[in-house]
Structure formats: structure tokens, C-alpha cells
Design a protein around this nucleic acid. Structure first.
Length: 263
DNA sequence: AACACGACCTGGTAGC
DNA sequence: TGCTACCAGGTCGTGT
């Protein structure tokens, strides 16, 4: 599921559905944690926030429940009487009978309670939020100047920009016409400005797509409605120039790109 | 300091 | 129909 757009879709829905709800019981399975269960009991969820790919449930008393969905996680509220998926890793019973479920089939997700100070530290460690006014073309230029790594790795480094992952980094680079292996610090200002626009556009469209696709339990995917140009399309024709999409390996992961359009 | 790589996990799918 | 191999939206620790 989750790069920034999917996490943001979850955040928006949960903030509508469970803000102000009180947790009356918590059950953590697969990695039981009685202490955390006890700490969650009786807390009210003040609001549901997000930083990068992290969901942040701000609780009464100032602590923050950080939920990271890993590769395949999902978080949703279930109506009274419905039972969570077999792969559920945690469920929080709410005062009104609903259940907040963390479904985590691959068990790569995280769940931890942070103090206000720890939450502040997390916010500092993560890079700029690409959906806010703090993210500007100038900011991108400055960040890229200090990085010799390939631009694809620069984009997915959460300490520099928070929220981009394998799909949307590849799609933004395609839209900007930039080859993923180009060193970040060797791109011209002009090309980085194009990349900036591409990132902002891709995220905006993907958030809309993710909001449409997400309805609670089960898998969802912004790309159900997001028009993927390159991601997972190796061997298929580029939508712009019809050349075959290529796949390279960077830091152990696949990067998809068009060898005709991306230089 | 900056990179690559394996580990952590499970499930889907393509090919034999 | 099995079986194997590879792929997968993320991070973290370790080693060079």
C-alpha cells in the first residue's frame, strides 16, 4: 500500500472517523506487548496526523501512537460486530463499539508509542514534507546540491524528502524526463525545477486516486486509478515515445524508466 | 560519509 | 497439478 498518497488517504478517512474516540481496550498479537496495551487503554484519539509515511495518532496526555504500514499494511475502523482479518496485528476497541484494526500481512509494519519529545525528534529526523509550502523548487535544488547519489535514491531517502517511495519517485522522474541514475548534484537548476513540478503533480493526483481507492479493509492501491507510465511496466511501450520501458536495479530495488524519454 | 547488501516477512504469479 | 524462482508500495543493521 503505502507511500505518502496511500498513507494520506488513510489519515484523512481515519481523522474523520476516529478523532475524539476513546480506546477502551488494545490487543496486540503476533508481537504481544502487554505494557503498550495498558498504556493505550483509556486514551482518547485527539487527531490523526501524518509525517512522511508515518501515521501519527495523537493521544490524550500528549503521547503519539506511530503506525508505519511497511509494504503491505492497512489501518481502518471496523463497525461493531465485524471481525478483523486473520492477518491483523493489532486492534483497538473504541468506546462506541467499533474497532481500529492494523492489518499487516507481511509483518513489516511498526507500531510504537512515542512521548511528545520522541515525536518531535521523529519529525526532525524526517526530511521536508513534499505536500507543504516548505517544499519549494529552491529547497529541492539546495537538497540536491549536497547529494552525489543517483537521483532516484535521493528522492526515496526519507531524511531528505519524506514520503516518496519506489512508485512515485519513478513516476516523477519519468514526467521530468530525468534518468534515475543521474547523480542528484549534477542536474541543472532547470531540470530540478521540472522535477519539482513533477513531484508535486504526481503526489496531488496520487492522493486523489488513493482517496478514491481506499474504503477500509482489504488491499488498496492509488494506482488503481493513477495512470502509471513506467512503474512495473518493463517491456511495455512508453506512453509517450513507444520505446520499451526498462528496469534497472538501484540499491537492491527495481527502478522503471523510459530509455527514450529519460536522460 | 556514502554506498551495497542481507534481513525482516508473506503472498502472488510466471514458467517449467 | 505441483514445484521453483522471482517479484513486491519499506526500513534497519552491518560491512566495505
Amino acid at each position: 500500500m503505502p507511500e505518502l498518497p496511500e498513507v494520506e488517504a488513510v489519515r484523512r478517512k481515519l481523522d474523520r472517523e476516529v478523532a475524539k474516540a476513546v480506546i477502551v481496550a488494545a490487543r496486540l498479537v503476533r508481537r504481544p506487548d502487554r505494557a503498550l496495551e495498558a498504556q493505550l487503554r483509556g486514551r482518547r484519539i485527539e487527531r490523526v496526523g501524518r509525517r512522511g509515511k508515518n501515521l501519527l495518532l495523537e493521544l490524550s496526555g500528549g503521547s503519539v501512537l506511530r503506525v508505519h504500514l511497511g509494504m503491505t499494511g492497512n489501518l481502518y475502523a471496523l463497525k461493531q460486530g465485524r471481525s478483523p482479518a486473520a492477518t491483523a496485528r493489532a486492534w483497538l476497541e473504541l468506546e462506541d463499539g467499533r474497532t481500529l484494526v492494523l492489518d499487516d500481512p507481511r509483518a513489516l509494519g511498526r507500531l510504537e508509542l512515542l512521548s511528545a519529545a520522541e515525536a518531535g525528534r521523529l519529525a526532525c529526523e524526517l526530511g521536508v514534507e513534499p505536500t507543504t509550502a516548505e517544499f519549494t523548487a529552491n529547497r529541492l535544488v539546495e537538497l540536491a546540491r549536497g547529494c552525489r547519489a543517483p537521483i532516484k535514491l535521493f528522492l526515496t531517502d526519507q531524511k531528505r524528502i519524506s514520503g516518496l517511495g519506489n512508485i512515485y519517485a519513478a513516476e516523477a522522474l519519468f514526467r521530468a524526463g530525468i534518468h534515475p541514475a543521474r547523480p542528484a548534484n549534477r542536474l541543472s537548476r532547470r531540470r530540478l525545477e521540472r522535477l519539482y513540478t513533477a513531484i508535486v503533480d504526481v503526489l496531488q493526483v496520487a492522493i486523489q486516486s488513493a482517496c478514491n481507492a481506499y474504503s477500509g479493509p482489504g488491499r488498496f492501491d492509488a494506482s488503481e486509478t493513477f495512470p502509471l507510465a513506467v512503474y512495473r511496466r518493463a517491456g511495455l511501450p512508453c506512453p509517450r515515445c513507444r520505446r520499451r520501458i526498462g528496469r534497472i536495479r538501484q540499491a537492491g530495488r527495481s527502478t522503471y524508466f523510459c530509455p527514450g524519454c529519460q536522460r
